[in-house]
Structure formats: structure tokens, C-alpha cells
């Protein structure tokens, strides 16, 4: 297990390093001068040169890259170009919204996927299966930010069950915050859940055709017990794979949906930074998002090994 774990952890670090290099290249080396962008086209050459020095952009790229990375390792993300305050101050509060939102949506979408997928598989080719799959096909097609708008119109404006937007802050109490997160999480989870439900269903059906299922039935287990005791765990492998792959999309979705709900999460932080041409903030936020994706996929890799003992053997 430890070899497996170590190997995966190395992959995690390598991927993060790669991601940071890609981000750095795109943001700092490709054409586009932050100083020029900040000051605008009418700025004088001297002003631009001054700002360039001030921001430390005249130093060699390699040096700046290592400064950035070592800074991160020491918990220093640099200073915002626009606000002259540490980037960390800008993103700290945002993380406290985005991360819980992403986790809540993930939980909701997995719950939705398991319920719908298992139910559809158990009623394979019956009317309930066919209509559920039709609905899920629709669910995949709905843009999450539009669903968010519809949810606001119905549950916040019409029924007044949930707030239409904003975020009270965790000091205001746990449940108020969860209540504020429910609608955006549902908007995000519906699309993800619809995709995962389809995967769950087809994976369960696939596993039902395996020989060991017949063995389980020959032991005298009922169809239902076989599903729970033998099929479920085996069928989770593709579901988890897709879950890992979809997490990046889910996170991208939070950026948008937060915006619909006027929540000061990472999404609005990064959008504001783009408007302020605050590239260093964009850089760090994108790296954070990438890191979340990579860590999620690391967890997925570990889950694989928990689910399927064969994988450990392969890797060692």
C-alpha cells in the first residue's frame, strides 16, 4: 500500500509542478505585458517601465517562477497588483465559499447519481428506467448557470424557501450558510449527477453480466442482495473515474454559478481580477483550482485501490 501511495503522491506533485509551469508560461511569458495592460494603451513609456520594475517584472522569467513557487511553499502568494495587499487576503474568504460549495455539490451529485442510476438499473428497460434516462439526457444538456437562474426564480422568488443570492459568512451560523449554498449546489449537482447517473446505470448493468454475479446467485443470494453485496462495489470503478474527470468541470461550474448567486467565491475573485488586470491573482486562483482537481484525482486513485485489491498488486 505504501509503495502505491508514494507513487501516486509523486504523480500528484509532478502534475502540480506541470500545471504551475503551464500557468506561468501562459500568464507571464506569452505576449501581453501586465504593466501595459494595467495602465492602458495611453500610458507613457516611462510609467510602464516604472510599474514594470515596481512589480518586479523586469527580472528573468525563471527567477520570477522560482520566486512564485518558493513563495507558495512558504505560504506567500505575492501581492495583488491592483490592491497592493497579499493575494492570500483576497482569496482566503473566497476559498471558504468555493470549497464547501464544491464539496456539497459533489455529495449531492453522487447521491443523486447513485439513487437514480441504481434504480434505473434495477428496473432495466422498464418504463421507469427509460423515462429516468430520458430525463438525465435532458439534465446533461441544461447549462448549470441557467438552471441556477430557474432555481432562483422558483425556489427563492416564488416559494421564498432559500435566499436568492449572497453568502452570510460562516460566523452567522452553519445552517444559514448551508441554506445559502443549497440552490447553487443543486444547480451544479444536477448536471454532474445526470452524467454520473448514466454511468452508474450502465456500469451496474455491465457488472450484472459478470460471471461472479451468477456465482452469487447460485449461492442463493437474491437479486437485491447481489446488487448490494457484489455488484455495487465493482460497478463503482468507472463511476469514480468519471467523477474524478468531471471534478474539473464541476469546479469550473462553481466559478460561474457563484456569479449567478452573487457569492464572493473564487469565481467572482478571479473575474474581478481579470477586470482589474490583476494577473498575479488570476495565476494563483487558477493554480488553486488546478490543485483541487489534482488532489481530487489523487483521492480517486486511492479510492480505486480501496475498491479493487487487484490494482495495488499491479502497481507494486
Amino acid at each position: 500500500m505504501s509503495v502505491f501511495f508514494a507513487k501516486r503522491f509523486m504523480t500528484l506533485l509532478a502534475t502540480l509542478l506541470g500545471a504551475s509551469i503551464v500557468i506561468f508560461i501562459v500568464m507571464e511569458i506569452l505576449p501581453g505585458d501586465p504593466a501595459l495592460v494595467i495602465l492602458g494603451v495611453e500610458a507613457t513609456d516611462e510609467a510602464i517601465a516604472l510599474l514594470t520594475t515596481e512589480l518586479g517584472l523586469d527580472r528573468p522569467a525563471l527567477e520570477r517562477y522560482f520566486d512564485w513557487i518558493f513563495g507558495i511553499l512558504q505560504g506567500d502568494l505575492g501581492n495583488s497588483y491592483a490592491y497592493k495587499v497579499p493575494v492570500w487576503e483576497l482569496v482566503e474568504g473566497a476559498l471558504k465559499i468555493t470549497v464547501p460549495l464544491a464539496i456539497l455539490s459533489m455529495i449531492l451529485s453522487v447521491a443523486l447519481a447513485l439513487v437514480v442510476g441504481l434504480y434505473a438499473a434495477a428496473n432495466h428497460n422498464k418504463a421507469s428506467d427509460i423515462s429516468l434516462m430520458g430525463i438525465s439526457q435532458l439534465g446533461i444538456s441544461i447549462p448549470n448557470f441557467w438552471l441556477a437562474v430557474l432555481l432562483i426564480l422558483y425556489f427563492a422568488v416564488n416559494l421564498r424557501w432559500f435566499p436568492a443570492g449572497g453568502f452570510p459568512g460562516w460566523d452567522e451560523g452553519f445552517w444559514v450558510c448551508i441554506k445559502a449554498l443549497i440552490l447553487p449546489a443543486v444547480a451544479l449537482a444536477t448536471v454532474q449527477g445526470a452524467i454520473l447517473a448514466r454511468i452508474t446505470r450502465s456500469s451496474v448493468l455491465e457488472v450484472f453480466r459478470e460471471d461472479f454475479v451468477r456465482t452469487a446467485r447460485a449461492k442463493g443470494l437474491s437479486q437485491r442482495s447481489t446488487l448490494w453485496l457484489h455488484v455495487l462495489r465493482n460497478s463503482m470503478i468507472p463511476v469514480i473515474t468519471v467523477m474524478g474527470l468531471q471534478f474539473a468541470n464541476l469546479l469550473a461550474g462553481t466559478v460561474i454559478v457563484e456569479n449567478v448567486f452573487h457569492m464572493p467565491g473564487l469565481g467572482s475573485t478571479v473575474l474581478k481580477a481579470i477586470n482589474n488586470r490583476d494577473t498575479i491573482v488570476v495565476e494563483n486562483v487558477v493554480l488553486m483550482l488546478a490543485a483541487m482537481v489534482v488532489v481530487t484525482n489523487f483521492i480517486v486513485d486511492i479510492l480505486y485501490a480501496v475498491i479493487d485489491p487487484r490494482l495495488k498488486a499491479h502497481d507494486i
Partner: peptide, 25 residues
């Protein structure tokens, strides 16, 4: 393949955010 591996960490929206941050919307 390695290159396409980590570009999977950047969905369309994220790469677009980076690109528009540089080139403008």
C-alpha cells in the same frame, strides 16, 4: 500524453479565464 494529462486539470472555462486575463475578453 503527459501534456494532455495535465491539461485535463483545466476545463474550457479555466483555460478561457487564463487566456482572457492576458488577451482581454
Amino acid at each position: 500524453m503527459r501534456f494532455s494529462d495535465f491539461s485535463f486539470a483545466f476545463p474550457a472555462i479555466l483555460s478561457a479565464i487564463m487566456i482572457t486575463a492576458i488577451l482581454g475578453p
